[in-house]
């Protein structure tokens, strides 16, 4: 057999939305935000673990994490959480077979699940945006 050239897209195929629809971008963003939140949790456990070293150790750690850079980072976690949570609820409903329509006889121009699901997708994203705004107000003004 002659040599085959490998053409699996790999990480870029997983991450890049290309010319595909909104759901494809939501897929990538859901995974990225999931990884981001996981990274935050690991860091969070490390930071809170510093309390074991005594009050001085805790205070110096808190001072290091009080810089504006970490403040922005924390806000990014809020944004990631808002998207991941709302999109996750949407995906649970979709994976239970809801909000994507039923099968039928295909006739051109074809209607398909993600197309039928688009209005629901937009409503969920509006919810996510609202949660981000509320989170932002709370983060920067209320919790000051």
């Amino acid at each position: 057999m002659q040599q085959r050239l490998k053409n699996r897209l790999g990480l870029w195929g997983w991450l890049g939305g290309g010319r595909y629809g909104l759901d494809r971008y939501a897929y990538s963003l859901h995974r990225l935000t999931g990884l981001g939140i996981l990274a935050y949790f690991i860091m969070h456990i490390f930071v809170t673990g510093q309390r074991v070293g005594g009050p001085e150790n805790w205070d110096s750690t808190m001072a290091a994490f009080g810089s504006p850079l970490f403040k922005v980072g924390e806000f990014l976690v809020v944004l990631a959480f808002a998207f991941h949570a709302i999109n996750g609820i949407r995906l649970i409903l979709v994976e239970l077979g809801w909000l994507i329509g039923k099968p039928g006889v295909p006739s051109f121009p074809y209607s398909y699940s993600t197309l039928r699901h688009k209005p629901v997708f937009i409503i969920f994203m509006v919810f996510a945006a609202a949660l981000m705004i509320i989170g932002g107000v709370d983060f920067y003004f209320v919790m000051k």
């Binding site: 629809g21 494809r24 209607s111 699940s113």
Partner: peptide, 17 residues
């Protein structure tokens, strides 16, 4: 549920569904 399969299907099969 990235939905790309259903988007490109030339026969309207809708694999995602």
């Amino acid at each position: 549920f990235a939905g790309a399969c259903s988007q490109v299907c030339p026969k309207g099969v809708d694999p995602a569904l």
